[in-house]
């Protein structure tokens, strides 16, 4: 890992100002992606701004018809929270599938959405559930937040503070994991709120997380795994690597979507 300067702000305002002052500086949340990336020298930020001592960034609460999760809330906390389990059980299940127990004790929701790894789980949950990403500057709908591979709508000096999830009637996530990295080869999050059905896919898209509109349309007719029978997703724009070809991943999208719908109906 290359050397960097380290900052430990106490408030979001200080963090934002440090971020604005340190060009190419990075926010350190749980560090479960950033630190390995830096160790491999794939990233060499000259400054790290550690949010761990900022008060009030961690926590889970119900606000009206929304579940609001602080940016520094750990995956383990979301996975085991009774509030999340009651409000959106599919989200708690998803958090429990990230990494492994030790990784879940450090990794955070804010870090996951801000990094927007094309195989991360939270971006799919945010997109399918129609979440709102709340920063120190504004509120950004998930549909506009995830803009590409490791790219988000975050501006320089902008820090994710919370994520708000509207409570849906049915939601579930199905993930086909790479057994070594534990990232999604393909992960599909399905959510139903009234007649609105959203299906988000991670791990597959060459441009990161995306909504599978063909699957959404089919599920609008009837919210059942049978509705997805015979739908094959095109392999264009789908990632291929040593773990799986684009065709295989495309096939997995429908398979995982069916599993997610089955799980959502059972909740």
């Amino acid at each position: 890992m290359y050397a960097f300067s380290y900052h430990q702000p106490k408030t979001v305002r200080q963090a934002a100002s440090l971020l604005a002052k340190n060009e190419d500086g990075k926010i350190l949340a749980g560090g479960q992606t950033l630190l390995p990336t830096m160790k491999q020298r794939l990233a060499a930020p000259p400054a790290l701004i550690d949010l761990s001592k900022v008060e009030g960034l961690s926590g889970i609460e119900l606000k009206g018809r929304s579940l609001v999760i602080g940016a520094m809330t750990k995956h383990a906390h979301v996975a085991t929270s009774e509030i999340v389990r009651q409000a959106i059980p599919g989200l708690a299940d998803m958090a429990g599938l990230i990494g492994d127990p030790a990784v879940r004790n450090r990794g955070t929701i804010g870090g996951s959405v801000a990094n927007n790894d094309p195989a991360a789980d939270y971006p799919a949950a945010c997109l399918a559930l129609g979440a709102t990403i709340i920063t120190n500057m504004r509120k950004v709908p998930a549909d506009q937040f995830f803009t590409g591979l490791f790219e988000t709508a975050l501006e320089p000096g902008e820090v994710v503070v919370k994520v708000a999830f509207p409570i849906v009637s049915k939601a579930a996530y199905a993930k086909f994991r790479n057994p070594a990295s534990r990232y999604a080869m393909v992960g599909v999050f399905v959510a139903k709120r009234g007649s609105d059905i959203r299906v988000a896919v991670t791990g597959a898209g060459a441009n990161g997380v995306f909504r599978a509109t063909a699957l959404e349309e089919a599920l609008k007719k009837r919210f059942s795994p049978k509705s997805l029978d015979g739908i094959s997703m095109p392999a264009t724009g789908i990632n291929g690597d040593i773990h799986a070809s684009p065709e295989y991943r495309a096939h997995l999208i429908t398979v995982m979507a069916k599993r997610a719908v089955t799980a959502a109906i059972g909740k």
Binding site: Q8, G31, P36, D50, G99, A102, V103, R106
Partner: peptide, 25 residues
């Protein structure tokens, strides 16, 4: 690379991979 778990220790009561955490944190 935070996969094998040989480096697991407890920090404030939670198991973490100490190869993927800064000492300053």
């Amino acid at each position: 690379t935070s996969q094998c778990g040989a480096c697991v220790v407890h920090v404030d009561g939670a198991a973490v991979k100490s190869c993927t955490m800064l000492a300053v944190s």
